[in-house]
Nucleic acid binder design. Structure first.
Length: 686
DNA sequence: TGCTGTATCTTTTTT
DNA sequence: AGATACAGCA
């Protein structure tokens, strides 16, 4: 029973055009909150209605969250056919495709995926093997080396150019880094290991060098759609275009003003250049904003209008009323946290649910104090972004055993597993590893291993091998259960705080029990790891509504009724690390823009006046008075928000800062006064 | 060779 | 504050 969708009524003319355009190349420039997701969702439904098979539609999105949300909404709109659309992130799509076509590239299809720290460790190993660990001059650290190599791949630039442009301090090591890159490449190839970049590189090669595969994929995916195109890098853009090269049915959607991934090689010029690749590209611009109130838009428009380079857009809304964004210069970090917690409780009284509220920040640790405050007040929350659950050392330990089970040639995991055994360091571990001879998918330990502990490890692995058939479809939870028996003593030996970590292992087991196949489990842990959830306060299921804490990066594409943006201070947003060049600051500006455009009704900007954060020791140590973010301090912008003085004694000053929003004064006036009252009332308790 | 204690540096965002 | 590199000891 198909629902009849009334596209004409549900969409504005520009949106409708995008939805009803089927064949050909389209570039949709979609300002923040302009209904971009709505367009994609409707377009999926429209295509399906036009008898395009769902799996012939390829939807490449930036995060899995975005993909799921989109397919969920499309299914709601039409029917469950929409949930069978192909797609995911570039990396997950690459993974799936490469496993299918592994043979063509002479690649084992049980390759393992190295995450960033695995890759960095491998780099270090190779550096040592090359004898580059004993240099007299200071050599770049493993992360830095990896960063350089990765950037050169993602930006499709020569290593030397990347060094010259971004890491001039490493120029003198140019030859050594190249050597490491070469050895690293060989090492991975020999051991069936792929890092994140390899996924893209191999996919690109597959598409470029194998016309038959490219054709097959083109037939399979007749309509290609790419979301958040401004955040793709050269390699990804190339892949998208290659996929569409046969039929040229491609729609890319993005907003140059929201490009925030240049550190990963993203280049918003991809958007500008798209029409050059596809000759008859039709450009559709969505400018009407359906998300935020006018006062919020006034602020965000003002901030982005100062960007150096952009498509001219001016977002407007028909939404009436709304209150001014508030700027609160809280006394210190904890005052900032308390303000938010108070306000959240107040909003909840008014019927705003926790799930409609978010606190956003530039970097993961910005929310540390807030997390403690929220926990003490029993406000349940989930944190997105920042350090991931699977990056914790003990989780990586356990996963390394699983990776060995899956791909016994995975030497990176072998190394990790062996180093956990007391008495075995890197030398012995290397010796042991080279004494193995690696068969096709089973390991053959060679005699002469004396260490009883190593035996034990091998026995456990053998036990797993015999307990479950070597074929795919192994049950990851069962394997973990066996491994934990073995691992627990090692855990206690290695970490003083093991009792905290043991809980995490339970979580891992719980997560694993949702998977039927080891391969899928390992892939997801590498490519789409579960977010670190601190909401274990137990209040989770009570009303099933949780507050969102998120880095700005992870908040992309989402929206909330009320948004708090914290640490809106110089050195934090913009981050002091990006102050060196103009491009860096421009990206911070876009970050500010992305963050503040997430708000539908209320936007609170906060900063602690006294900065005792760990990084303040950089400039002088101890505590430092913060300056408001430069994005709030540019001429003419002050009247786009209301500044609330935290000093408590300055009611008059705060009032003086208040400038009326022309037009709809009654609503915002009342709102403002209420805020003020609440605010100063709150102050008395301090 | 491995372990432990100390000196040193760096510190963002994500697949 | 935390990670990493390094030096010295067992």
């Amino acid at each position: 029973m198909n629902k009849k969708i009334d596209y004409r009524n549900e969409l504005n003319p520009a949106q409708l055009e995008a939805v009803e355009s089927i064949d050909g190349a389209y570039l949709v420039i979609a300002g923040a909150g302009s209904g971009k997701t709505r367009v994609l969702v409707h377009r999926v439904a429209y295509l399906v209605e036009k008898k395009v098979k769902p799996d012939e539609i390829l939807l490449l999105t930036f995060t899995r969250r975005a993909a799921e949300e989109m397919l969920r909404r499309a299914s709601l709109l039409l029917d469950e056919r929409c949930s069978r659309v192909s797609g995911g992130t570039f990396h997950s799509f690459a993974n799936a495709t490469l496993r299918r076509y592994a043979k063509v590239l002479h690649l084992a299809n049980n390759f393992s995926i190295l995450d960033e720290s695995d890759a960095a460790d491998t780099i270090n190993l190779i550096r040592a093997r090359l004898g580059l660990d004993k240099t007299d001059k200071r050599f770049p650290r493993k992360r830095a080396i990896l960063e350089v190599i990765s950037k050169s791949i993602n930006k499709s630039e020569k290593l030397a150019d990347v060094l010259y442009d971004e890491y001039p301090q490493f120029l003198e090591f140019s030859d050594e880094i190249k050597k490491i890159r070469e050895e690293y490449r060989k090492y991975k190839a020999a051991k069936s290991l792929l890092d994140y970049d390899d996924l893209l590189v191999y996919l690109k090669e597959l598409l470029v060098n194998h016309a038959d595969v490219r054709l097959a994929l083109s037939r399979r995916y007749k309509y290609v759609m790419v979301d958040e195109y401004q955040d793709t890098n050269k390699l990804q853009a190339y892949i998208a275009c290659l996929l569409a090269s046969e039929h040229k049915n491609i729609m890319v959607v993005g907003d140059d003003a929201q490009s925030i991934y240049s550190f990963r090689g993203a280049n918003f010029r991809n958007i500008m250049d798209f029409p050059r690749l596809f000759k008859n590209t039709r450009i559709i611009i969505l400018e009407e904003n359906y998300r935020s109130t006018q006062p919020i838009l006034n602020l965000t428009n003002e901030v982005i209008s100062r960007a150096k380079e952009k498509f001219e857009k001016n977002l407007y809304t028909r939404k009436q009323g709304g209150s001014h964004p508030l700027f609160i210069d809280a006394e210190d970090e904890n005052a900032q946290s308390r303000y938010i917690a108070d306000k959240i409780l107040g909003l909840r009284e008014e019927g705003i649910e926790l799930k409609d509220i978010a606190v956003l920040f530039r970097s993961g640790w910005h929310s540390n104090d807030l997390e403690i405050e929220l926990a003490s007040r029993n406000i349940p929350f989930v944190k997105y972004g920042g350090q991931k659950f699977v990056e914790a050392a003990h989780i990586k330990d356990v996963i390394s055993y699983l990776r060995i089970v899956y791909n016994s040639a995975d030497q990176v995991s072998w190394m990790r597993a062996l180093l956990l055994i007391p008495g075995i360091g890197s030398k012995s571990a290397e010796k042991i590893i080279s004494s193995f001879s690696f068969g096709k998918d089973r390991l053959h330990p060679i005699s002469g291993i004396k260490k009883e502990e190593v035996r034990k490890l091998l026995d456990i692995l053998k036990e797993i091998d015999s307990a479950s058939p070597a074929q795919a479809g192994r049950d990851p939870a069962r394997i973990i259960a066996i491994i934990l028996e073995y691992y627990q003593p090692l855990l206690k030996h290695k970490y003083d705080d093991f009792h905290k970590r043991i809980n995490d292992l339970d979580s891992l087991l719980r997560i694993a029990s949702r998977y039927k196949s080891l391969e899928q489990f390992l892939t997801d842990m590498a490519l789409e790891p579960p977010e670190r959830s601190l909401a274990e306060a137990g209040l989770r299921d009570k009303d099933d509504s949780t507050l969102t804490l998120s880095t700005i990066h992870s908040a992309k594409g989402l929206e909330w009724h009320t948004v708090f943006l914290i640490y809106v201070a110089e050195g934090h947003l913009p981050s002091y690390l990006s102050l060196e060049d103009e491009e860096g600051i421009e990206e911070e500006r876009r970050l500010f823009y992305v963050a503040s455009t997430r708000a539908k009704e209320n936007l609170f900007l906060l900063k602690p006046h006294i900065d005792r954060s760990p990084r303040s020791f950089m400039d002088g140590g101890g505590s430092v008075f913060t300056q408001p973010s430069r994005f709030l301090d540019e001429g003419g912008i002050m009247d786009k928000f209301v500044q609330v003085e935290d000093a408590g004694d300055e009611f008059a000053a705060a009032c003086a800062e208040f400038k009326e929003d022309t037009g709809k004064k009654s609503a915002s006036d009342k709102e403002f006064l209420r805020m003020m009252q609440e605010y100063f009332h709150g102050q008395e308790e301090d």
